[in-house]
Simulated scan of single mutants.
Amino acid sequence: MNETINTLMEHTSIRSFEDRPLSAEQIHTLIESAQAASTSSFIQAYSIIGITDQTKKEKLAELAGNQTYVAKNGHFFIFCADLYRHQVIAESKEIDLSESLESTEKFMVSVIDASLAAQNAVVAAESMGLGICYIGGIRNNLEEVGELLRVPKHVIPLFGLAVGYPSQSPEKKPRLPRNHIYHQEEYQQDLVTYKKQLSEYDAIISNYYAERTNGKRQDNWTDQMVNMLSNPKRMYMNDYVKRQGFTKR
């Protein structure tokens, strides 16, 4: 196993960081690594906003559900789906590109582009000995987040990325079995096998929590999913995305 693969395999989310900012060189390296990611048709439909102002970080932490590590880290990045520059191109060339820019397809392209860029940054950060935590909580209050960041139409903040020097070393959480995730040739739909795999994974996760908490927690993955999905979140998202000029077509 080479060093890159080992870095990928050892990933854990870090939620406690040293009070130590990243250097300008580190930040630039992470941005350049993000920009090296693949991008659909070279459209580069994303932007990254770096947050260093402590007052703004604390406000973002509040909007994200009072997650302290949004405010306390080495650097906080926000990855955005971004077709604003393409709208500017259209206007400067006096051409109407709205049918394409407002399509669901280009929304998917922008989300995928941003996600690929972010994961490149994550791998780069972890290879440098830094820790990371993705922050989907900024989508709890996107209207306020958008106002705070002054994003124009055709831009949507998708998620945050807290990066810094870890002050904790959490255990790696077991993922779903490979044979449940990977399908050969076609999607395998044998329900007996499918449910058996889920049951086996439940036992693994239950044991993981029991060992991690000295028996205080013993829930499993499928129960977690039922509890989470029984309480729909961020149901305003469809309207917000449309107001920002996406998915109108």
Rank of each mutant, 00 (worst) to 15 (best):
Glu91Lys: 15
Ile132Glu: 02
Ser103Arg: 05
Val145Ile: 11
Glu126Gln: 14
Leu116Ile: 15
Ser92Phe: 04
Val122Ser: 04
Val145Met: 06
Leu142Met: 06
Lys93Trp: 06
Gly137His: 05
Phe77Gln: 01
Glu144Arg: 11
Val123Gln: 11
Ser92Leu: 14
Glu147His: 13
Ile138His: 03
Ser103Ala: 10
Asn141Ser: 11
Ala118Ile: 09
Glu126Thr: 12
Asp96Arg: 06
Ile138Met: 11
Thr104Arg: 08
Ser110His: 07
Phe77Ser: 00
Ser103Trp: 06
Ile112Glu: 05
Gln119Val: 11
Ala118Asn: 10
Leu130Ala: 01
Ile89His: 09
Gly137Pro: 14
Met108Ser: 05
Gly136Gln: 08
Phe79Arg: 01
Ala90Ser: 15
Leu130Ser: 02
Asp82Thr: 10
Val109Lys: 07
Tyr134Asp: 03
Leu142Asp: 01
Met108Asp: 09
Phe77Glu: 00
Val123Pro: 03
Glu126Leu: 04
Gly136Arg: 02
Phe79Ile: 01
Ser100Asn: 08
Met128Gln: 02
Ile78Cys: 01
Tyr84Val: 03
His86Thr: 14
Val88Asp: 11
Phe77Met: 12
Thr104Ile: 14
Lys93Gln: 14
Leu130Val: 00
Tyr134Cys: 09
Thr104Gln: 12
Glu147Arg: 14
Cys80Tyr: 05
Ala90Trp: 10
Ser103Pro: 02
Ala125Cys: 09
Phe76Thr: 00
Gly146Ser: 13
Arg85Thr: 06
Asn120Trp: 02
Gln87Tyr: 08
Ile138Leu: 09
Asn141Gly: 01
Ile89Tyr: 13
Arg85Pro: 08
Ser115Gly: 13
Leu97Asn: 09
Asn141Cys: 09
Phe107Met: 07
Tyr84Trp: 10
Glu105Ile: 09
Val88Trp: 05
Leu148Ile: 04
Ser92Arg: 12
Val109Ser: 07
Gly136Ser: 03
Gly131Met: 10
Glu144Phe: 04
Asp96Thr: 08
Glu105Gly: 10
Phe76Lys: 01
Lys93Cys: 13
Leu97Gln: 06
Ala125Trp: 04
Gly131Leu: 05
Ala118Ser: 15
Asn120Leu: 02
Asp113Gln: 06
Ala117Gly: 00
Ile78His: 01
Gly129Met: 04
His86Phe: 14
Gln119Ser: 09
Cys80Ala: 05
Val88Thr: 12
Ser98Tyr: 09
Val122Gln: 10
Asn120Val: 02
Val122Gly: 00
Leu130Gln: 03
Val123Leu: 15
Ala81Cys: 14
Ser92Cys: 14
Tyr84His: 15
Leu142Ile: 13
Ser110Ala: 15
Lys106Cys: 05
Gly146Thr: 10
Val109Met: 05
Ser115Lys: 12
Ala81Trp: 11
Val122Leu: 06
Glu126Tyr: 04
Ile89Asp: 09
Glu102Met: 12
Cys133Ser: 12
Phe76Asn: 00
Cys133Ile: 03
Asp96Met: 11
Phe79Tyr: 02
Ala117Val: 08
Leu97Pro: 02
Met128Cys: 03
Ala125Thr: 12
Ile95Leu: 14
Ala121Gly: 13
Ala124Asp: 08
Ser110Thr: 03
Ala114Glu: 02
Met128His: 02
Ala81His: 10
Glu99Cys: 05
